[in-house]
Design a protein around this nucleic acid. Structure first.
Length: 112
DNA sequence: CGCTTGACGTACA
DNA sequence: TTGTACGCCAAGC
């Protein structure tokens, strides 16, 4: 159907909606979110939205880069905050600040 | 109004 | 193979 009726004309709100839908114990990447929005190269813009989302109550810690690295851990106020949160959700880590994205990757639009 | 920056990703040399 | 450059979109100054 037609492309999703974006109730949110703003790129930001659209990112918020996607991030807020990330299921528990699951993670996604900036590129996938951007691709879901229409431009897979807009990953940087997604990062901007996430930065603004800091403090909006969104599970930003579930958003990682293409390598599963916690790129935005600095915006959380602590380098181990995101890691601790993800571990609390049962997410596996392949390295410090690196989640096993292959085992927990969730794609926007997929049913929970 | 215009240039720079930014929680990324892909392409090319 | 590794490294560098560019592209995307929006906000900030």
């Amino acid at each position: 159907m037609a492309p999703p009726p974006a109730r949110n004309d703003d790129f930001f709100d659209r990112v918020f909606d996607v991030v807020a839908r990330i299921p528990f114990g699951r993670v996604t990447t900036y590129g996938h979110i951007a691709a879901h929005l229409g431009s897979k190269r807009a990953a940087r813009t997604v990062g901007w939205a996430l930065r603004a989302a800091a403090g909006h109550g969104l599970p930003c810690h579930r958003v990682v880069n293409r390598y599963g690295g916690l790129s935005g851990h600095a915006a959380f106020g602590g380098p181990h905050v995101m890691e601790d949160l993800l571990r609390s959700e049962g997410v596996a880590f392949v390295d410090e600040a690196i989640v096993d994205i292959n085992a927990h990757l969730w794609i926007p639009g997929e049913p929970v």
